[in-house]
Amino acid sequence: MYTTRNDLMSGSKGPKAVVLLDKVSTVYEGERFPAIRDVSLCINAGDFVCVIGPNGSGKTTLLETVNGILRNTSGNVRVFGLDVTESGHSVRTRTGYVIQNFEIDPLSPFLCKNVVMSGRVGKIGLLRFPSERDWAIVDESMRLVGMDSSADRPIGKLSGGEFQKILLARAIAQEPEMFLLDEPFANLDLKSRADVDRLISDLNRKGATTVMVSHDIDSIPFSCSHIIVMNRGRVAAFGPRDELLQNGVISSLMKVRGSAV
């Protein structure tokens, strides 16, 4: 169910609101201007939200503000009904994050299965050791992304796309209630893209609220329910997918993309 901005402003949150942002701004340390400003939105349980927008429009900042990796400078962030400033840890334990593609030192001493297991650390909890069940979940996650044969390979030896899949497996192994995926299709070939698209949609259908960033409007999965358009740190548009796809904001964004190429 989609909650309108007016519902949000009048303070009535739907019973299933998973993410609730109220006039949220986030300023990076040492910066003067907020990277996202006055963002208000509501994401309900089971939604599949795609965040699109040009480079530097604040998509990553939005995700990291939602799980509290970045502290918002003003406004209010509530996730799972918890205040992120106070209960960041439990929010993050229940949220799987796929970080935007980053470089890894090719000599780094980490095996894939252990990287995938590291997604479960918060879930397993302090002073506990991974059980057989935890390892079974790790195996299953690697199988889902088609990387089960790479369990004992060093992470630095993977290709960009394989690495991306391991990061996704890591988030899946966490068994989160919500996924925050920052450009999960980066580096993937067409077939892998279709596979991952199907996988993410499956997980969403099984109940995981999903927020996925993409700067490419063509890669919005079919099962996406809502679209957020970011521009210069603001929400330029937010609504159900079909409504937004006909909206002028997106086509103007695409025109910019078209003329830039």
């Binding site: 990796i69 994050y97 970080i99 650390v121 879930k123 990061l167």
Partner: peptide, 9 residues
Amino acid sequence: KLAKAAGVN
């Protein structure tokens, strides 16, 4: 960052 995102202090 990923450690923090998974709930590590």
